[in-house]
């Protein structure tokens, strides 16, 4: 038993040690650049995204009011943050590292670049380098499109990728496709990432027990991984393929926290009864005063 605890302790210590280490960014990710030039509109979009997703930990840029965590989240205006190349920022935001959450399933790549454009607005010395477009008529093709189909018998989602190559629309083979389902917070990956076959198709098996809305609807999102080649390509559709799930809202039944019309019966009864009883007696006493008054008149006569 003690041995087991000891080894557990060692594992914890090692992992603590590991997590305290440098945040390594693979060279090819570090070198990535934004596909678009940063502008006022990207900064504005980035500021909004930052305020909803990041501010709770990283605080207001330049104010150093970050949340107390170990290791501490750096202020976006700080040298620590700004010394990252664009690609490294993108990688770190997308991947995360405890306690920094991963945002790759929550924010699109474009969103992350928008946030980076906002972060960079706190650095006067920053000069942006943008990505040179991958060869227009390159191997991958342009205007990639995604079609989504539901295969009922096998309970699978089929995707079909096509692109314009040499002015003809053709299936795209051998490219990586990912399937997600939209959840309350972020996107849930479904099955593994797949590569398209020669016909541009990829099959994903869909779980049978995934809860959907009250009619079983879920929103599917399909993305192409190779953004360098295609840009950001994604498609979504809403299908009734999940388990219909009805979660009664907390204010549906009578409860203490509900509106007065939905107060618990026992409380309504207890309250009404007590009030009526007390005020019944009080009114009775008032009537008695009247009786006393009347009795006095009779005596007078």
């Amino acid at each position: 038993m003690i041995k087991r605890y000891l080894s557990l302790l060692i594992i914890v210590l090692i992992s603590l040690h590991l997590s305290a280490q440098e945040w390594v960014v693979p060279a090819e990710n570090g070198a990535r650049l934004s596909p678009f030039a940063f502008s006022d509109s990207t900064r504005k979009a980035g500021a909004e995204l930052y305020n909803t997703n990041c501010k709770s930990c990283h605080g207001d840029p330049g104010k150093n009011n970050v949340i107390k965590l170990v290791p501490p989240p750096p202020d976006p205006a700080s040298a620590k943050m700004q010394s990252n190349p664009d690609g490294a920022l993108h990688f770190k935001i997308a991947e995360g590292k405890t306690p920094m959450p991963s945002f790759k399933n929550i924010l699109s790549s474009v969103n992350i670049w928008q946030i980076i454009s906002y972060i960079r607005s706190f650095n006067d010395k920053y000069v942006q380098k943008t990505q040179t477009k991958p060869g227009g008529s390159g191997a991958a093709g342009e205007n990639a499109k995604i079609k989504i189909a539901w295969l009922k018998e096998t309970h699978q989602v089929q995707t079909f990728i096509s692109a314009t190559k040499e002015k003809v629309i053709q299936p795209v083979a051998g490219t990586e496709v990912k399937l997600f389902v939209k959840r309350y917070f972020g996107n849930l990956p479904i099955d593994e990432a797949r590569n398209t076959d020669a016909e541009g198709k990829a099959l994903f098996s869909f779980p049978k027990d995934l809860p959907g809305d009250s009619a079983g609807f879920v929103q599917l999102i399909v993305k192409l991984s190779d953004e360098a080649a295609f840009g950001e390509v994604k498609a979504d559709t809403t299908l009734a393929i999940a388990l219909p799930t009805y979660r009664p809202p907390l204010n549906e039944k009578r409860a203490m926290w509900n509106v007065v019309q939905k107060a618990p019966i026992w409380l309504l009864l207890a309250y009404t009864f007590s009030v009526l009883a007390a005020w019944g007696f009080i009114i009775y006493v008032f009537l008695q005063i009247r009786v006393i008054y009347r009795a006095g008149i009779r005596k007078d006569q």
């Binding site: 007696f281 009080i282 006493v285 006393i292 009795a295 006095g296 005596k299 007078d300």
Partner: peptide, 24 residues
């Protein structure tokens, strides 16, 4: 003084009313 005449009946009513309130 609501026409108080010190009649026994008035006292009786008064005491009853007070007793109700004292308990209530």
């Amino acid at each position: 003084s609501v026409n108080w005449q010190h009649t026994p009946q008035q006292y009786k009513i008064l005491l009853k009313a007070m007793r109700i309130l004292l308990i209530l």
